[in-house]
């Protein structure tokens, strides 16, 4: 057996859920959720949540900004949408949902990746203009976290709705085209030093990587034009392509090439 990324990634994903749930067990490791939380006393905040709240309320809290900046810097270093691939519980849900629908062979159609940027723009402008943190209201991430934290189940209907739409009509549409958090991290990830590297020499063109990739468009520049790194910010750094590649043509780069 050769080394695989996916078991580690799955562990991290489940670990995040465990952290969110940990206060229920009386543990004092983590408080809050992915919008804002304290990990071992260190304040963390979703940069997008920070931007929405600040734009909406016109209140600037320095510590909040600091927490958001630290988180943004962290994700910049480790790849931007790494948040999606490794941390976000909704991604985990839709990922498993996608497995199921593929197994059943229902959802075929995918929509363009650039939607997340638009929804990011809408989120921020509505926040500013309407004075309401728009995405925090609708966020399936928040809904899922609060379901875990407070056993508030009904809003999960939204997540269920996403799952049904994704299974029947539009493959992974939430993460691919709608989530503004993804949109924000895509902007960061575009410039992140942590990338998937590609070796044209080793590639046999089997197409397995595109098949498993949730955002297969990001591989096109490499597969078509032989680009040595996946540079698109939309890449979630999930590592599934690396794991699947029979020729070991894909690997982890920790610097720009």
């Amino acid at each position: 057996m050769s080394f695989k990324w996916w078991p580690i990634r799955r562990l991290v994903q489940l670990g995040v859920i465990a952290l969110i749930a940990s206060p229920l067990a009386g543990l004092n490791i983590f408080r809050g959720n992915l919008a804002a939380g304290d990990l071992l006393g260190v304040g963390l905040a979703d940069p997008l949540a920070f931007m929405q709240a600040t734009l909406a309320s016109h209140i600037f809290i320095l510590s909040f900004f600091g927490s958001a900046l630290a988180v943004a810097a962290f994700y910049f270093v480790i790849g931007g949408r790494t948040f999606c691939g490794w941390v976000c519980p909704v991604y985990l849900v839709t990922e498993l949902n996608d497995r199921l629908s593929r197994y059943l062979g229902i959802a075929e159609r995918s929509y363009s990746l650039s939607g997340t940027r638009w929804s990011l723009a809408v989120t921020l402008s509505v926040s500013l203009l309407a004075g309401i943190p728009l995405f925090e209201m609708l966020s399936p991430i928040g809904i899922t976290s609060r379901a875990i934290m407070f056993k508030s189940w009904t809003p999960l209907l939204l997540v269920l709705g996403i799952m049904i739409v994704e299974a029947l009509a539009a493959r992974r549409i939430w993460c691919r085209s709608l989530c503004p958090v993804g949109g924000f991290y895509a902007l960061l990830g575009r410039f992140s030093p942590l990338r998937v590297g590609f070796s044209r020499q080793r590639c046999t063109g089997c197409g397995e990587c595109s098949r498993v990739c949730p955002v297969e468009e990001v591989l096109a520049p490499s597969l078509v034009d032989g680009a040595g790194q996946v540079t698109s910010g939309d890449c979630t750094r999930c590592g599934d392509c690396i794991d699947i590649c029979p020729a070991k043509a894909l690997d982890v780069n920790i610097w720009y090439k």
């Binding site: 206060p23 408080r31 709240a53 309401i132 934290m149 407070f150 209907l157």
Partner: peptide
């Protein structure tokens, strides 16, 4: 409503579980 990001930390901090997070209603 403008400033709340719904992180639930206040509810977790309450020793009496007085603070609840509202649902879809």
């Amino acid at each position: 409503l403008a400033a709340c990001i719904k992180c639930g930390k206040c509810a977790q901090a309450c020793p009496y579980n007085s603070i609840r997070m509202s649902g879809a209603e």
